[in-house]
Design a protein around this nucleic acid. Sequence first.
RNA 1: GCCCAGUUGGUGGAAUUGGUAGACACGCUAGGCUUAGAACCUAGUGGAGCAAUCUGUGGGGGUUCAAGUCCCUCACUGGGCACCA
Length: 909
Amino acid sequence: MSMNHQEIQEKWQRFWEENQTFKAEGPSSKKPKYYVLDMFPYPSGAGLHVGHPLGYIASDIMARYKRLQGYNVLHPMGFDSFGLPAEQYAIQTGQHPKITTEVNADTYRKQLKKIGLSFDWSREFKTSDPSYYRWTQWIFLQLFNLYYDVELKKASPISHLQKHFALYGSKDNHAFNGHELSFTPHEWKQYSSKQQEDILQKVRLVYQDYQTVNWCEALGTVLANDEVKEGLSVRGNHSVVQKKMMQWNLRITAYAERLLHYPSDIHWPKALMEMQQNWIGRSQGLELTFSTELKENLDVFTTRPETLYGVTFMVVAPEHPLVQRVKGNKELQEFLQYVGRRSERERLSEKNYKGVFLGFHATHPLTKKKIPIYTSEYVLMNYGTGAVMAVPGHDERDKAFAEEHQLPIISVIDEKTQSLINSENLNGLSIEEATKEIIKLAEEEEGFGKSSIQYKLRDASFSRQRYWGEPIPVYFKEGIPTLIEEKDLPLELPDVDEYLPTSDGRPPLARAKNFHYKNHPLEVSTMPGYAGSSSYFLRFMDPHNQDAFLSLEAMRYWQEVDLYVGGSEHATGHLLYSRFWNMVLFDLGIVEKENPFKKIVNQGMILGKSSLLYRTKEGKTFVTAEKKDEFDTVPLHVDISLVDPVTHKLDIENFKKWRSEYASYDFILNENKDYICGQIVEKMSKSFYNIVSPDTIVQEYGADTLRLFEMFLGPIDASKPWNQGSIEGPYRFIQRVQRLFLDDKGNLIVTKEVATVEEKKILHKTLKKIAHDIEKFSFNTAVGQLMIFVNEMYKLSCHKEEILKPFLLCLSSFAPHLCEELLEKLGEKDLRFMSYPAWDEELTQENTFELPVSFNGKRRFSMEVPLNITQDEVMNLLQKDDRFTHQITGKTIKKIIFVPQKILNIVIS
RNA sequence: GCCCAGUUGGUGGAAUUGGUAGACACGCUAGGCUUAGAACCUAGUGGAGCAAUCUGUGGGGGUUCAAGUCCCUCACUGGGCACCA
C-alpha cells in the first residue's frame, strides 16, 4: 500500500506554514545570501494552468537546493495586480477592482501553495496595495526631481540645474536634452514660474509633453510602443491611431547608452540581450547640415557618410517643420491630407513611395550642386532628424523613390572593388577610408557636420487614461505640475461611481469627488502597468519598511537578484524599464548594483493540446477526423475533458450535454463507430478549452509528481506541449522511491547495514551529478539521474539508510513532501536543519574505463583499461587480443591515434 | 527583408563541447504474478538482416584518423525586429 499523497501534502504544507520554514533571515544573517525571484504574476480570474508553474518549480528547486547548501535564501512572491482585466470586469459589473484582485490573488496563492513552492509569504505584497504603491509614487517624485547629466553620466538633482540657469542661463548646461534650451541668466530670472517649469519639463526624467501617442479608442487609453503590434493593441486587437496628447513620459532615452552595457558577471540568455540591444538600436553616423534656399538649414543623419557624393535629392518627413514653411502648394496640401487620413498601419505597409517636391533646394556641401527637397511618408519624424539625404544608388528605399519620381541615380561605390567612384577626390578609396575622409571634412575642414549617435529607443509613455493604476502624485497649481509632498504619500486611489471615462473624454479619476490636493486639482491619469513591476524586486528586500523604500542594511546585504526566472516576452518591456529605474536609484545611492538581475533564465511555454470537431459547412453534422477531408468542414474547439487523451475519442453523450445547441446534430463515425477528434498544439487558453489545471494533477498524482513531471518534460527554456500520457513515468518513480523505504503494509524496511563501495559510488556520483545539473539549470537530466539511482538500488536490493538518506536530501528539492515524510520516518525532524550531502570526489571517479578501439574510424570493440594507461601499454594488451590480430591480418598499420581516456583509432590499409 | 535559435527512434528528449549515437522516460512486444483485470516485476525495443554485418542525427557538399557536434549551401520550424536613413 502506498502512502496517500494528499495527506502528506497537507501535512507538510501545514508544517511549513506553521514553522515559517521558508522565511528568509534578515540582513544581519551570518549566512551568505541567495535571492531567487520569479516574475510575479498578474492574478487573472482564470487561475493558474499547468504552464504557469514551470518557471516557479525550477526556481523553487534552486531555492531549496541553495538552502540545503547553507545559503540564506530570499524567495518571495507577490502580485502584479494593477491591470486591465480587473478594470474591465469592474466596468461591466460595478465591482471594485480591488475586490476582484483580492479574490484572484487568494486563488493564486492557494494554488501556488498546493504545488509545495517554498515562498517566503511573509514578504508578499500586491502592487495595488497603497502601502506598496506609496513607494512607486515615491520613485516618481525622485524621477521628477532629477535630470540626466551628460558629463557626469548620471542622474543629478534638478536644483543644481536651476542654480546653473540662474547663474549662467542655458549656456554650458550638461542636461540631457538641454542643448535645445537658449536663454540668458537674466531671462531665466524674468520668466514666470510657469515658463521656468516649461523649461524644466524639457530635462526632468519624468516630464509632461505633447506627444504623438498610440491612442486606442476601444480601450480608451494610450498604449506604449511595446503594447502595440502592427497598428493593433496587443491586448484585445483593437485599432490604434496616432494622436497628439499631453502625456507623462519617462526620459529613458537618457540612459540608452548605459542600458546597452552589461557588466561581465551578468548571465542573461544571449537572445534576451540581443532583443534589448536591437530595441535600443544604436547607430553611429554623421549629422550633416545642408544649407537651403530658405533661411533654415536642413539637418540630416546618415550612417553612410562615404556615399555623400551619391546624394541626388533630400526627403523630409511630412511632419517636418520645413514642410510647414511651404505655402500655397496645392499638390503638397493634398498630399498632407492624404497622409493624415492614413493609419500607421497603412503607412507602414505602403511600398509605393508617394511624395511631393517642396519647391526649393538644398546645396550639396561639397559639390555645391542644387538638390531638390521632397517630402514622403517613408521618412519618420521621430528618428534622427526627420530628414534624410537620399542616396538612391545605395539605398533601396531611396532608389524606389527615385524611380517613382524620375530622379537621377548615381553609383558611388564600385561593387567589384568596393572602392569609391564618381566621388571626385575620394575616388579609389576604400569605404572605410572614404568614411574617415568625409568625417574629417565635415567636422574639421568644412564644418558642415559632426559625428552623431542615434537610438531607436523612444521615451516611454507614462500616462494611462485608466482607473486601476497608481495615481500620479502630481497636482496643478495655477497650471504648473507640482509634486505632492512626500509625507502625504500614498496618494490613494479615490473611489468613483463608474470606472469609465467621463462624458467629455477625461479619465475615470476625473469622476472622483474632492480629488484635490491643497485645493488644487490632482492629475487624473494613472501610471502604466509596468510602473508597479519596475522596482518590486527591490522592495522584496525590505517589504515592511515604513520609513524608507529600502534600508541601507537590506540593500547592502541582498544587493541584487541572483536568479530571475520568467518569460522572454518581457525583454523590451519590464526588463528594460526595471534596469532603467534601477539605474536611477543606483545614481541616487539607493541601490547597490547598477544592474538588478545577475542571472536570468527564460522558461519556455507549455502549450496545450486542443481537440477539434469538424462540422460540415451545410447541414447539422460532425465528421470524424479520418473522414473530414471527404467533406467541406470547419473546425470547432471542444473541451478536452470530453475527449480521451490517448485515443482522441469523443464522449458524444457528454458533449451534447456540454453544448445543448449541438444535441440534435448527426455524427459521421469511423469504422469502429467512434468519433475521433483532431488535435492541434497551441497556447493554453480558456477560449480553446484546452486548459489543464495544476489542481487536478495535484489531486490525482500529487504535487511531487507534478513537479518532477514538469521538470522532466524537457529543457526549461524550450516550448513544449503538455503531454499528459508521460506523467506515468514520474508517478511510478515516486512509488518506487517509497517502496525502497516501505513494504506493502507501510512498515519501514530501511536497514542500518554498512554500504558497499559499489553502493557508495552510485550514491556519490548521483549527488555530484544532481548538484551540477541544478547549477546548470538542467533539471530534465537531473530527474533522469534520480531515476537511474533508484533503478540501481532496485537491482542491488539496497535498502540501507547510509545510502538512502543522503539520496532523500538530494531528491528533496524536487519532491519535498515525500522526502520530508520519509526523513521523518527515519527520525529526522526538519529538513531545514539538514544540508546537501557532500560527495566524496574519489568515489565519483572510475579507475577503469571502456576504451573504444576503432579501425579506420569504425568502432570494432572496446576493452576495459586503467584510466591512466599509456599508448604502449594499450598496444601491448592488443597484441594478445584476437579481435585485434584478426583485424590487422594482411594489413599494414599506417597510423595510431590514441587519445587518453577517449579513444584508440588505428588507421590500416 | 534582417537578426537569433532549432531540425536526433513511434513520442518527449540525452550525448562530458570533435572521440565513435539514442541516456532517462512514455509507448510497444514477450514473459512472470493474478480466477481475471489493474498495479507490480523481468527482458527486449532506431531501421534492414537468421547471422556476421550493413545503415543511420532535415537534404547536398567539405575539413578530420574521427562530425549530431566545426565550415559552406539549401530546405523547413519557432522566436524577435522591421520603412530606423
